[in-house]
Design a protein around this nucleic acid. Structure first.
Lengths: 355, 355
DNA sequence: CCCGGCTCTGTTATCGTTAACCTAAACGGA
DNA sequence: TCCGTTTAGGTTAACGATAACAGAGCCGGG
């Protein structure tokens, strides 16, 4: 017979049914303290039968922990964020924590809302993987100051009590660009940011540095995309940005011979634009991506790109966070930067050119 | 001066500081009851200064609502799930609810865990967008029976008190297949499920029906992929499944002339495999995807696919849920099936063949 | 035989917030 | 002037769970 109860079952309900006090039921549920075997079994039987579920609110309020971690990501469709999340979950699950994800897709305002929602619901800690913003950073600082454990992934924000995990995208961007330069390219485009916007994008800074170090000028017309809204775009639609951006580059009277795209999605858009134009990759235009998403190895030609150890970053962030949650909350910040790896495939290398 | 308090600020702290009772502070915070303007401002000033944040646990426990909705999705990287989430968020945000997302990536076990975590933390309702499973369904039934509002997206599970939103993927699969048949194809492959696994995949059932209705046999060797683990794979790596599956199809001594892929990612994998083999699309092999992800319109050739109104499904699910949360929880289930739309692009149509 | 320690269970208070109830002053119309 | 209504705010008791303490029975060693 099915219960049609509107009100959820509480410890007290079970206690009444099993003829003990709520405290005893609590002891059974938490396997704490002494409970006679017979009592335990009776209680468990009743609990199961009544389909009992603990009230996390009451429990959390009392014990001042929720065994819950919040994570804020900007774009749910981005494989990079997805992979981070996998790493985070891997660690949390093993330690008995539940992960709640909040999306902050469009604005700093949503970022702040996400922080507040999570903090208000008293998650034990927060992992932040969104891009920095003025108001977001301010709120974050307040949170951390008020004692909430926070661990950051690739966010340009520093605080004495917040650990930071990142990939060395400056070097990644540098290496990628150097690879193109080494192949003899002199006119190298970048798709995905406006020159002004790009100050925050490390891989773009790496691109600029590499050009400078090798005596090449930065031609402003070779840096396209962004439209000043790049940061607000849902990630995978950056693919359209790649397509449009590449078309604009191809319309130049002196188009680039190589293009470095902000990420692999952007690169795929660019790739399709190049093919549409009837040009060959890499013979006419070499193409470089970033992130090494699974798709990258299967495009044709396969995409040269930069791999960052994404899952490891997620794992590291989760481990930092748990250390803070379960250990000393005031311990000084720790920082971990993972190296990036250039993955050379066909889109920058003439086939057969290397074995 | 920065507070180094370990303990968060409570209503009582503010009350003491502002020389009122906690109740008055509560009234100020919730804008309920009468509070003198001067008192209000004094309280607000103190609250701001102490950086007060309400304790959602205590509040939720007391008022028996958390103004929070949980959503369970299987694969965070899947643009389909991402788009659903956008629709859901759009509705929830407008109504003042916070969305917490749980990922259930690998197994029915994780599905159950996600349901439990959300229910235990007393979200006001749950939106479920994962595929059906034995144990998941059982747990879901218990939850709904115990009064938790639930709304389902494309899950093959029925309950008198759970609303259901879906796309008519049976018809979508049927139409897609019929389109290929109409183009004269007789050997049409399917990549993405094993024949046995496919009973739950509506679009595959549509494929089978269309073949039957047009007097074509189902050749078992033309149905590839799945490897019996398809359901556990992270979504975007189904792209590899498409690549491998296509290669297997091409190795047949009598390969198909058209291929219907389970989703667009799978289709992109297949597309790359076809190109690698030096064959032309659609002249040598026609290719059909499913979902119409943004990438689909930019591949070369552009992918023919089936579009489902994804965001609308998310919105509808959220609306159903809110109706149940804020209205009558026992109202009978409602169901809404959105039509799918065949999007004909180049991968099934010889260029120039139609104007 | 007594006492210390283990086992089992109950009692009480509390986590932070708010609904419900209550008091009391101020106000305004008859 | 009187009384009902509005305004302002305090008091009490929960919401459901658990930590801390307390007490009662039992066992075994000195």
């Amino acid at each position: 017979m099915k219960r049609l109860s509107k009100k959820p079952v509480t410890l007290a309900d079970i206690a009444a049914q099993a003829d003990v006090t709520p405290m005893t039921v609590s002891r059974v549920m938490n396997q704490s303290g002494y409970v006679h075997v017979d009592t335990r079994e009776r209680v468990l039987r009743v609990a199961r039968q009544m389909n009992y579920r603990p009230n996390g609110l009451a429990r959390g309020l009392k014990i001042q922990r929720t065994e819950t971690v919040g994570m804020v990501i900007g774009d749910i469709a981005n494989p990079f964020a997805a992979e981070l999340t996998r790493g985070v979950r891997e660690v949390l699950e093993a330690r008995g924590y539940t992960l709640f994800i909040c999306i902050s897709e469009h604005s700093a305002k949503e970022d702040v809302q996400a922080f507040d929602s999570l903090a208000d619901h008293r998650v034990d800690g927060i992992i932040v993987a969104t891009r920095a913003s003025q108001s977001g950073n301010e709120r974050l600082e307040e949170l951390i100051d008020s004692g909430v454990p926070v661990s950051l992934i690739g966010r340009d924000f520093h605080h004495a009590q917040a650990d930071l995990v990142s990939a060395d995208n400056l070097k990644g961007g540098y290496d990628a660009t150097r690879h193109l330069i080494a192949a003899g390219h002199k006119r190298i485009g970048f798709i995905g940011v406006s020159v002004t916007d790009g100050v925050r994008l490390k891989r773009f800074q790496g691109y600029l540095e590499a050009l400078k170090d090798h005596g090449l000028d930065v031609a402003e017309d070779l840096v396209v995309g962004g439209r000043n809204v790049a940061d607000q775009m849902p990630g995978y639609s950056t693919e359209e940005m790649g397509f449009d951006g590449m078309q604009r580059l191809l319309e130049l009277k002196d188009p680039p011979t190589a293009v470095f795209a902000r990420n692999d999605f952007t690169a795929m858009g660019a790739l399709n634009a190049i093919k549409r134009a009837g040009l060959r990759i890499p013979e006419d235009i070499a193409l470089m991506g970033y992130d090494d998403i699974p798709l990258a190895s299967h495009t044709s030609p396969a995409l040269t790109t930069v791999r960052q150890p994404t899952r490891d970053q997620g794992k590291a962030a989760a481990e930092f966070l748990l250390r803070r949650i379960e250990g000393d909350r005031e311990q000084p910040r720790e920082e971990k930067a993972f190296p990036c790896e250039l993955v050379i495939r066909e889109s920058t290398t003439v086939i057969g050119y290397q074995n």
